[in-house]
Simulated scan of single mutants.
Amino acid sequence: MTTDAPLVLRIARRFDVTPERVFDAWLDPAVAGRWLFATPGGAMQRVEIDARVGGGFLIAEQRADGLASHHGRYLELDRPRRIVFDFWADPGDADDPARVVIDIAPAADGCELVLVQHLPARYADYADRTRNGWTTLLANLARTLDAAPAATHSRETSA
């Protein structure tokens, strides 16, 4: 057994809104800044999202223990079904990032999101913490979407 094999984490969450609203919440800086990598005691400092394949994101929040920066590079955007991005928090990990795959499927009265993260083997000890983090973030997303009215226009994202 190789110790270099990534660990695969899978988290599923049901939402009572359309797949388009869930998809767009990942890519709209005004919405993402309210839930994505946001913590109760933190203050969001920067939310930059270049929502195109090859584009990326930087989300930085000031926390009690310092600035927490989250970076990503979009590999696939298929509205409203799929988002794939490479992800890293430590700048030294940009050359060996985690891969995150988000699939969104219509369901009765909403949709289901399945998030799969391929976590580099060196972070295996953080698997539970990572799973709990994504679970909390998806709950934050649900609260954000419940509190925000649906947009009156549709946002196009190129693939």
Score class of each variant (00 low, 15 high):
residue 20 E to G: 11
residue 98 A to Q: 10
residue 32 A to R: 10
residue 148 A to R: 15
residue 143 R to N: 00
residue 110 G to L: 00
residue 90 D to K: 13
residue 17 V to Q: 01
residue 118 H to E: 09
residue 83 I to G: 05
residue 76 E to W: 05
residue 125 D to A: 10
residue 35 W to T: 00
residue 58 L to D: 10
residue 61 E to C: 15
residue 98 A to F: 11
residue 151 A to I: 02
residue 127 A to L: 09
residue 87 F to V: 04
residue 73 R to S: 09
residue 84 V to K: 11
residue 130 T to F: 09
residue 72 G to T: 07
residue 94 A to V: 03
residue 62 Q to Y: 09
residue 125 D to H: 11
residue 103 D to F: 06
residue 30 A to V: 02
residue 101 V to G: 08
residue 89 A to W: 13
residue 10 R to V: 01
residue 64 A to L: 14
residue 72 G to K: 09
residue 117 Q to Y: 09
residue 64 A to E: 13
residue 105 A to N: 03
residue 75 L to K: 05
residue 17 V to I: 01
residue 122 R to W: 12
residue 52 R to N: 11
residue 126 Y to T: 04
residue 155 R to K: 13
residue 91 P to Y: 12
residue 95 D to T: 09
residue 112 E to W: 04
residue 116 V to F: 07
residue 91 P to F: 15
residue 3 T to A: 06
residue 20 E to K: 07
residue 18 T to R: 14
residue 25 A to L: 07
residue 98 A to K: 07
residue 55 G to C: 14
residue 23 F to W: 06
residue 87 F to Y: 15
residue 24 D to C: 11
residue 128 D to K: 11
residue 37 F to Y: 12
residue 134 W to T: 07
residue 71 H to M: 13
residue 25 A to H: 06
residue 149 P to F: 00
residue 101 V to E: 13
residue 123 Y to T: 04
residue 150 A to E: 06
residue 132 N to R: 13
residue 120 P to Y: 14
residue 147 A to R: 08
residue 87 F to R: 11
residue 68 A to P: 02
residue 55 G to M: 07
residue 150 A to M: 03
residue 50 D to R: 12
residue 110 G to Q: 02
residue 66 G to T: 08
residue 7 L to P: 00
residue 69 S to D: 01
residue 101 V to R: 14
residue 133 G to P: 01
residue 156 E to C: 05
residue 159 A to Q: 05
residue 144 T to G: 00
residue 58 L to R: 15
residue 52 R to I: 03
residue 122 R to Q: 06
residue 18 T to E: 02
residue 144 T to L: 01
residue 15 F to H: 03
residue 77 L to C: 07
residue 89 A to V: 03
residue 6 P to N: 11
residue 153 H to K: 07
residue 82 R to L: 11
residue 45 Q to P: 03
residue 62 Q to K: 15
residue 7 L to A: 04
residue 7 L to C: 09
residue 121 A to S: 15
residue 14 R to L: 03
residue 76 E to K: 07
residue 118 H to F: 13
residue 85 F to Y: 15
residue 26 W to C: 04
residue 56 G to I: 13
residue 128 D to V: 00
residue 140 N to A: 03
residue 51 A to G: 10
residue 37 F to V: 08
residue 54 G to C: 11
residue 99 R to F: 13
residue 26 W to R: 10
residue 61 E to K: 14
residue 103 D to H: 11
residue 131 R to E: 02
residue 112 E to L: 03
residue 56 G to Y: 12
residue 103 D to K: 14
residue 84 V to N: 10
residue 36 L to E: 00
residue 72 G to Y: 08
residue 3 T to N: 06
residue 144 T to P: 02
residue 46 R to P: 09
residue 44 M to F: 06
residue 61 E to T: 15
residue 87 F to D: 10
residue 6 P to I: 01
residue 11 I to E: 00
residue 93 D to S: 12
residue 5 A to G: 02
residue 12 A to L: 04
residue 142 A to S: 00
residue 22 V to W: 02
residue 58 L to P: 10
residue 27 L to G: 10
residue 95 D to E: 06
residue 44 M to R: 14
residue 24 D to G: 11
residue 46 R to W: 09
residue 154 S to C: 04
residue 149 P to V: 03
residue 154 S to G: 04
residue 2 T to G: 07
residue 22 V to P: 08
residue 138 L to Q: 05
residue 87 F to M: 14
residue 78 D to K: 13
residue 72 G to P: 09
residue 70 H to K: 08
residue 134 W to N: 08
residue 59 I to H: 09
residue 60 A to K: 08
residue 110 G to A: 04
residue 104 I to C: 00
residue 84 V to L: 09
residue 17 V to G: 03
residue 134 W to Y: 12
residue 156 E to I: 03
